[in-house]
């Protein structure tokens, strides 16, 4: 174990107390077909959006989807780092991090495989919306920190990042809205899953692992273009298609609140 001289020494191994408690897996939907937090399967979670949270950044945003909290800031466009080649199109650099205290299990300081994968999905979703050809030789930096992960963190992060880009006056074809659903059996699509409802392969027995998973879709609502799809879990392709459809609809519905958030912010500046 190499020690990091720039941080204080920590114990080599430590375990979350949740490992040692007895837990019995309960069904995601109770007999009254309600979810644990009292929502209907179809019911979305309330979303709170704010622009300009980080005053030091060119643009920033804060999104809260049920208890999931995501903060995002955008810097640039600025010069690309020297060693990179001359590029006629701009470069989008994203950084996606879970705060160490944001999950049930403590996160390390260095990005793990999950974080780098989600970062890549975020970058690819945003690059379809940002007019990168308008920013030759420059880079735009997007930093996302998940402060609390209560499920659907990727969806919240994509929405927050696009909002922050708009707040930073970076030219975009359209805003990007993202939503996710938990597929639970053939008929049940739980919208905006909480952490407890997210898909963890190891929690399921082999029998009911089929048609079970989670799907996240990023959408440009006015252009009706899908700019990101990520799914996990084994399901029939018809179920997957239906889940993507559900996500698309939900992301479409996010357009109005996103627009409201951006225009209300504009009002403040004009006054």
């Amino acid at each position: 174990m190499p020690t990091d001289s720039r941080r204080l020494p920590v114990p080599e191994v430590s375990h979350s107390p949740e490992l040692f408690c007895s837990s019995d897996p309960t069904s995601l939907i109770n007999d009254d077909s309600l979810r644990k937090d009292g929502r209907n399967p179809e019911e979305i979670a309330g979303i709170f959006m704010q622009c300009g949270t980080v005053s030091q950044a060119k643009g920033s945003s804060f999104c809260e989807l049920h208890k999931t909290k995501v903060i995002c800031s955008v810097y640039g466009p600025k010069d690309v780092e020297q060693k990179e080649d001359f590029q006629m199109i701009g470069k989008l650099k994203c950084d996606f991090k879970f705060a160490p205290f944001s999950c049930h299990k403590r996160r390390g300081h260095i990005a793990d495989l999950e974080e780098s994968e989600l970062c890549e999905v975020l970058t690819q979703a945003l690059s379809s919306s940002v007019c990168l050809h308008r920013y030759p030789k420059s880079q735009i930096e997007v930093y996302v920190i998940v402060l609390e992960n209560n499920g659907s963190a990727l969806a919240a992060a994509i929405t927050a990042a696009s909002l922050a880009l708009a707040d930073a006056c970076i030219e975009q074809y359209d805003i990007v809205a993202a939503a996710s659903v938990r597929v639970f059996g053939k008929e049940n699509f739980l919208r905006d899953p909480t952490f407890h409802e997210e898909y963890f392969p190891h929690q399921l027995s082999k029998k009911n692992d089929f048609n079970n998973g989670v799907v996240t879709v990023a959408l440009m609502p006015t252009l009706n273009q899908v700019c990101g799809v990520l799914s996990e879990g084994c399901m029939e392709s018809s179920v997957l298609q239906e889940a993507i459809q559900t996500c698309t609809e939900e992301a479409q519905n996010l357009y109005a609140p996103l627009r409201k958030c951006l225009t209300s912010n504009l009002g403040d500046i004009n006054v």
Partner: peptide
């Protein structure tokens, strides 16, 4: 053991790099 750690993330200001 109590271990504090301060992170001046690149998010908070252009002074800092990831």
């Amino acid at each position: 053991i109590v271990v504090p750690n301060m992170e001046m993330s690149a998010l908070c200001s252009s002074h800092f790099k990831p």
